[in-house]
Amino acid sequence: MKRALGSKIALYVVLSLGALFFLFPFYYMIVGSLQTKVDPSIGGAFPNPANLSVDNYVAINDRINLLQGLANSGIFTGGVLLGTVVFGVLAGYALAVLHWRGRGVAFGLVLLVQVIPFQLLMIPLYVMIARDFGMADSYFGMILPFFINSTAVLIFRQYFLQLPKEMFDAARIDGAGEFRLLWSVALPLVRPALLTAVLLTFIGPWNEFLWPFLITKEASMQPLAVSLANFISNIAASTANPFGAMMAGAVVLAVPAVVLFLLSQRYFTSNDIGSGVKG
């Protein structure tokens, strides 16, 4: 009995150390963003009320327009979400429920796309979208390569597959068209999949750096991740408290994704990720 208790305590110690290791940098991000004067000493990890202010947020907002950055990130992410929810759901439904010639080949393509890393496509995509289509510094050029998230398509398919076939057959005999079936029979039943896929899709473009960095040169078009990166590599050194301002920008960039994740995490189970990755 004693041994079992000991091993249980050891278990929680291991898990808690892990949690500390993962969460401490976030805690430190917030503390650092509020320090009027940077304090990297060990004591500085504990907030000192005399040294707290929102000066850093004001300072970084003077150099890069945080609201404009948030708005650009929002438009970029919103466009991707729209494309994924509309066309991704249609594709997932076609792959799971409908029978048509070439379905197997199409599904093979979806799986193939999962293993092609975006970075390998970046030069041809840059030539195409920025040079040939003339879509540099535009929201459309930013959104295009991410417009339909393939992982979300797989998640939709997986969920539609779990719906009983008899249900669809019955509705078809009753004369329901496929659009009706999808909209009023299938979709309401896969609402958790929609939430999972929306969250997964959200963090992609919201956190994406490389592509919008390539395609936007104008500061007024840059998503927050890009303008913060420019701030870190070019501008920070000229501010009074460079690390404080960096942490303030990092908090503003991190908060929307983290809050959305915390709100929806109960829908976000390990099985969804497993099915999404395994296909």
Binding site: F22, L23, F26, N207, F209, L228, I232, A250, L253, A257
Partner: peptide, 19 residues
């Protein structure tokens, strides 16, 4: 707790690591 770094933008967490 374990998943939070994964959902956060690289640019934001790189900033903390630089610090």
């Amino acid at each position: 707790a374990y998943y939070v770094p994964y959902v956060t933008a690289s640019v934001a967490v790189v900033a903390v690591w630089l610090f």
